[in-house]
């Protein structure tokens, strides 16, 4: 392990420990033994295939979203618009999936639906990138505005066109576009897990082994320096935000193609914000993101698993604590002197 990697791992571990400590204090606050809470969370999740599958289901969406946020962070951009990008991906993916002829074979339907999901999210991400690169509009503010606008527009499209018979569910996608479930105790875990794993590996490779990866990380470290070696900062920012949005949109594969098989109101909600915790806890590295997605997925599902004696708001609050703890721990670690060897 290089000293840099070691420090990143240390920062993530410290942040996680601080979050567990704060979570324990919160548990005491609601009159629950922290030891019992953490143990039951682990025990129930590990022993019940359904709960374990739900962790994998959540982690799949979180990994794709975490990669989206991490990719943007690498280039010095903070994509908190993943929430809207997922909704756009879900909407486009489900619409294309439902519009395909019934007999479309999987070999055509799956790539088409994946492309639709990526295009939906990528269009939103690209818009944020263009506004940042060309107009200097801060991506955090435009992202929040677009999140609200997309949520409203998706609801309107749903109510006006897609939803059937008073439900908040649109037409089902064709059978060929469905991704098979993993069959873990009837849970929603599905084969889009493989897609997420491939995305992790692909991004890790592009990031460290290609000139693109170096260009976007150079822009993230120092835009002025990147400009002086001939990198077009505006172009990189736009492309990175488009790719970031496309990754977030791909989370629709998990929600639509793998689980609900239709557009539903609020599908995938909150995954975009959790993706921020995942990316930061994973220290923006694809492999770190994969591990962090499992951790946050476990926290999120584990909070529900012990819902009979711990309020679910406790783990919701921890998700904010994690982000703050990582932000603090990463700079604190950097300040510590390098140990002698």
């Amino acid at each position: 392990m290089t000293s840099n990697t070691r420090r990143e791992v240390q920062a993530a571990m410290i942040a996680l420990l601080v979050s567990v400590a704060i979570g324990s204090l919160l548990a005491l606050g609601v009159g629950v033994s922290p030891g019992k809470m953490w143990w039951e969370m682990l025990e129930r999740t590990a022993s019940d295939p359904y709960l374990f599958g739900q962790v994998l289901y959540k982690a799949t969406g979180l990994a794709l979203c975490g990669l989206a946020v991490a990719l943007a962070l690498d280039a010095g951009l903070f994509n908190i618009g993943a929430e809207g990008q997922i909704t756009a991906g879900v909407l486009v993916c489900a619409t294309v999936g439902a519009a395909l002829p019934d007999a479309t074979p999987a070999i055509l339907a799956i790539p088409l639906c994946l492309a639709a999901a990526a295009a939906g999210g990528g269009a939103v991400g690209g818009l944020i990138g263009v506004l940042r690169a060309k107009r200097g509009a801060h991506e955090v503010i435009t992202s929040i505005m677009l999140n609200a606008i997309i949520a409203g527009v998706a609801l309107w499209v749903g109510n006006a066109v897609l939803f059937r018979g008073g439900t908040t569910r649109g037409d089902a996608i064709v059978a060929g576009a469905e991704l098979p479930e993993l069959g873990l105790g009837g849970s929603s875990a599905n084969t889009s897990l493989v897609l997420a794993a491939l995305a992790v590996i692909a991004l890790a490779w592009v990031r460290s082994r290609t000139t693109w990866g170096h260009a976007w990380r150079a822009v993230g470290r120092d835009p002025a320096a990147a400009r002086s070696v001939g990198i077009s900062v505006a172009r990189v920012q736009t492309l990175v935000m488009t790719a970031s949005g496309a990754l977030a949109g791909l989370a629709a594969a998990n929600f639509v193609m793998g689980h609900k098989h239709a557009f539903e109101e609020g599908l995938g909600r909150n995954t975009g914000f959790l993706g921020i915790s995942v990316a930061l806890l994973g220290r923006s590295h694809p492999f770190g993101v994969a591990i962090a997605a499992l951790v946050i997925g476990f926290l999120s599902q584990g909070g529900l698993a012990v819902g009979d004696f711990v309020p679910k708001e406790l783990t919701e609050m921890l998700q904010g604590v994690v982000v703050l703890a990582v932000a603090g721990a990463s700079v604190w670690i950097k300040r510590q002197p390098e140990p002698g060897r």
């Binding site: 955090v140 914000f273 406790l314 919701e316 609050m317 904010g320 604590v321 982000v323 604190w332």
Partner: peptide, 23 residues
């Protein structure tokens, strides 16, 4: 005091407010 990224601290506090008030 810690010197953490100001953009991230801001968003973290907003997320904390969202979960914290519910808790």
């Amino acid at each position: 005091r810690l010197g953490a990224d100001q953009v991230i601290v801001g968003v973290a506090l907003n997320l904390l407010a969202l979960g914290g008030t519910r808790f």
